[in-house]
Design a protein around this nucleic acid. Structure first.
Length: 135
DNA sequence: ATGCTGACTAACA
DNA sequence: TTGTTAGCCAGCA
């Protein structure tokens, strides 16, 4: 089964990105973690780059780089996010502490064969160990 | 096959 | 703080 899963992985990426609710954002790395094998932060970026017509179906604009930085150029990503209520600081970054997507629900992730995010807690104090990766 | 590139990230200086 | 290095996976010359 390690053959030509790329396309399948890409579809999974789109599914995960589609789970990000309006007004929330995530990062390439987080998406890659949820999708799991065969994907990495960079591959997520490539997958979103080949969206084409599906760009209107997948909320690709809610996927940012590490730290809430927009990695796209010459696009209207920031404008789209602003229309959803996302705020930016003076540096043009999104305060992830407030707008970060907590990831898919554990049940949903398990049903679809995805993984939940490792605990990062928006605050660096409360670590909820309920999301143990049991591998 | 080898090497470089890319909507990335973490570690190190 | 910024800049560089290395790791990562897939596509292409």
């Amino acid at each position: 089964m390690s053959t030509g899963n790329e396309q399948d992985v890409i579809e999974r990426i789109y599914v995960v990105v589609g789970q990000v609710p309006p007004g929330k954002v995530t990062t390439y790395g987080e998406v890659a973690t949820i999708v799991g094998g065969g994907s990495d932060a960079r591959f997520v970026g490539q997958a979103l780059g080949m969206l084409g017509d599906r760009a209107s179906k997948v909320p690709w604009q809610r996927v940012l780089s590490r730290g809430g930085v927009i990695s796209t150029y010459g696009g209207n990503q920031r404008e789209l996010l602003g229309a959803e209520g996302i705020e930016f600081d003076e540096k043009g970054k999104v305060p992830m502490d407030r707008f970060r997507w907590s990831g898919p629900e554990k049940e949903w992730a398990e049903q679809h064969g995805f993984q939940t995010l490792p605990s990062r807690g928006g605050d660096k104090k409360e670590e909820d160990k309920s999301q143990l990766s049991l591998l």
